Computed example of a mutant assay.
Amino acid sequence: MNKTNQGDGVIIGIIDSGIGWGDNSEVFNEKGVGPIPSRWKGSCKEEDNFSATKYCNRKIIGARWYMKGMMEANDLNQTMAERLHKLSALDDNGHGTHVAYTAAGSYVNNVQYYDLNMGTTHGGAPLARLAIYKVAWNGINGEMISNIDVLAAIDDAIKDGVDVISISIGGGGGGAVNYADINEDTLFGIGSFHAVSYGRSFIASGGNSGPTSYTVGATSPWVISVASSCFNREIVTPLTLGNNKTIRASGLIKGKGHGFAPLVTLANVTKV
């Protein structure tokens, strides 16, 4: 990491559920970040419950939101949409903020987790800038996303001057066919090709399915789909079994021993 520029000068466009989950000002601090690149044409506006003063700086340089496609798909007018949602780039559920930090979170020292010192944490490119494009909204049955809104966000990200577009939404594969060409049935195939044709790198999540075959969600050959871990440390708890053998387990238990309990298998969980 010390031999790279750590993303300095790069603008990453995050297309997700917005930015600003709780008090996260420190994880997007602008320490060591230079001036906003002159090619940047986007904006970060004060809207509804989104505070540009609180969330926007030299790290988070842009924040937009998109809902027209979702409104049309769900037969919502402006008044109805305003009753259901806060129309701003503020993150409703934390996913977009999590993705943004994974990509380009700033250095944060002396991180504490349940009184344990976890040291220093940061994203993949801690000096890169972030431009936020909110397309995912909380609905009754989970997130609501319109392909039209996603494509509009991709188009604006290109015009705004981002270098990399990152999307961690959509299905996780699992079907018998994954399209590798520009196909009308695949959102990533259309949007990603448009971005790449303008010289923008396109990063998409592989999904949460697997490890069986045909479970990677983004398979277009010009899309970069990666798996990563953000931890270089472990939280280990000794677990003593009924036969008095002790094994290393991943987890955190505070206090003294909790006595014996039955083991839970995946089959037990899926039956609940």
Rank of each mutant, 00 (worst) to 15 (best):
residue 152 A to I: 01
residue 151 L to M: 14
residue 128 A to F: 09
residue 125 A to P: 01
residue 126 P to S: 11
residue 146 S to V: 13
residue 118 M to L: 15
residue 122 H to A: 15
residue 162 V to W: 02
residue 147 N to A: 09
residue 99 V to R: 00
residue 144 M to T: 15
residue 143 E to V: 06
residue 159 K to G: 06
residue 131 A to K: 04
residue 108 V to K: 10
residue 161 G to M: 02
residue 149 D to A: 06
residue 120 T to L: 08
residue 142 G to H: 12
residue 130 L to Y: 01
residue 135 V to M: 00
residue 134 K to E: 03
residue 125 A to R: 02
residue 130 L to S: 09
residue 113 Y to K: 07
residue 124 G to T: 14
residue 160 D to I: 00
residue 146 S to T: 10
residue 114 Y to A: 14
residue 118 M to A: 15
residue 106 S to T: 10
residue 109 N to E: 15
residue 153 A to I: 07
residue 130 L to G: 06
residue 158 I to R: 00
residue 105 G to Q: 05
residue 121 T to W: 06
residue 115 D to W: 09
residue 118 M to G: 06
residue 152 A to V: 00
residue 124 G to M: 15
residue 98 H to W: 07
residue 98 H to T: 11
residue 124 G to A: 15
residue 158 I to S: 01
residue 100 A to R: 07
residue 153 A to H: 09
residue 102 T to R: 05
residue 112 Q to T: 10
residue 118 M to H: 10
residue 131 A to Y: 00
residue 110 N to C: 05
residue 108 V to T: 15
residue 113 Y to M: 11
residue 103 A to C: 14
residue 140 I to W: 08
residue 160 D to L: 06
residue 123 G to D: 07
residue 127 L to E: 01
residue 143 E to Y: 00
residue 98 H to K: 11
residue 134 K to P: 10
residue 131 A to R: 05
residue 107 Y to W: 12
residue 148 I to P: 03
residue 99 V to Y: 04
residue 145 I to M: 11
residue 119 G to I: 13
residue 136 A to M: 08
residue 144 M to Y: 04
residue 124 G to Y: 03
residue 145 I to L: 11
residue 119 G to L: 08
residue 156 D to E: 15
residue 106 S to N: 08
residue 123 G to L: 05
residue 107 Y to D: 11
